[in-house]
């Protein structure tokens, strides 16, 4: 007999409770993910439009515009924004971002500072002695609002504008679908202008320079907002999948334990029977 019946019973109960918790977490994440997905679709309409306008302005030939956000400077110091979650139990969600950054960090030929979104990134950066800009990790709520984005953006963008840093890169999990999230690096600043298929020749009311001055900061905020939404959806999807497999594993374990329990019970009955029969034989 491997373990007593009482011990096995206790383990079954504990595992059952764990499975209930993981099941609940799975369902919570599923509903949060659905909401995040909806927000992304709504935001995509807006993002497509602003992207179109920005690429139209920045790639219009013959228009003399210049803005620090478009200048590619020699990179001496760069800021890296690591987007992770506050809590664990989300599968490889956090570790994949941090691993990717760590392996890239070794090859940097410039000074790197990090901005940490989420406790996990903050803890990691502290233990690896990275230079962190923010004193506490930036908390992002499950339903990301535009105001939070400004808080995150302003400081680091200001540093870029002041020439303190020459590049801003975001590391985050891009949401492909429920089962797949991939680590993505996105250069926020300087803005990488996209190729446009067809150029509209625009009249710039108020002058191209003033339009650029107004639109680019807005555009940067929008990109960050989009990325945070994307990362949130990935977090929920990743947690959902992780909790689903945790629940499955727990149920499987319960089945195995139940088998052991039955065997133990059978063994104890057999033992009792042999005792009784042995006793009866001795009396005769």
């Amino acid at each position: 007999m491997a373990a007593s019946m009482k011990d096995i019973k206790a383990r079954i109960d504990a595992t059952r409770k764990t499975s209930q918790i993981t099941k609940a977490m799975n369902m919570v994440s599923a509903s949060k993910m659905k909401r995040a997905e909806k927000t992304i679709t709504q935001f995509a309409v807006y993002m497509d439009k602003i992207e179109e306008v920005v690429s139209n302005i920045t790639s219009s030939n013959g228009i003399d515009v210049d803005h620090p956000m478009l200048d590619k400077r020699e990179v001496k110091k760069a800021a890296y924004v690591l987007v992770t979650s506050d809590r664990g139990l989300a599968g490889a969600y956090n570790s994949s971002v941090l691993k990717q950054f760590a392996s890239d960090h070794k090859d940097f030929d410039h000074e790197a500072v990090v901005v940490t979104v989420g406790n996990k990134a903050h803890g990691y950066a502290l233990s690896n002695n990275y230079k962190i800009i923010n004193a506490n990790s930036i908390h992002v709520k499950d339903d990301v609002t535009f105001h939070e984005v400004r808080e995150i953006c302003n400081k680091v963008v200001q540093m870029y504008m002041d020439g303190e840093i020459d590049k801003i890169v975001l590391y985050y999990n891009h949401y492909v679908n429920t089962l797949t999230q991939e680590v993505t690096k996105k250069t926020l600043l300087p803005i990488e202008s996209k190729e446009v298929k067809q150029l509209s020749l625009y009249e710039f009311e108020g002058g191209a320079q003033s339009i650029i001055d107004n639109v680019l900061p807005m555009y940067v905020e929008d990109i960050v907002y989009g990325i945070l939404l994307d990362a949130k959806a990935s977090e929920h999807a990743s947690r959902m999948t992780a909790m689903k497999s945790a629940t499955d594993n727990a149920l499987e374990l319960i089945d195995t334990l139940q088998l052991y329990y039955n065997r133990a019970r059978q063994a104890s009955i057999t033992l009792e029977l042999t005792d009784i029969i042995g006793g009866a034989n001795a009396v005769e």
């Binding site: 306008v53 139209n56 302005i57 509209s200 020749l201 625009y202 009249e203 710039f204 009311e205 108020g206 003033s210 339009i211 107004n214 639109v215």
Partner: peptide, 19 residues
């Protein structure tokens, strides 16, 4: 804050910002 203008049909392509 920079002023106002209107767009009617067949206006040439135009971009402007609103603070």
């Amino acid at each position: 804050s920079a002023g106002e203008y209107a767009i009617l049909e067949s206006h040439i392509p135009i971009v402007s910002t609103i603070d």
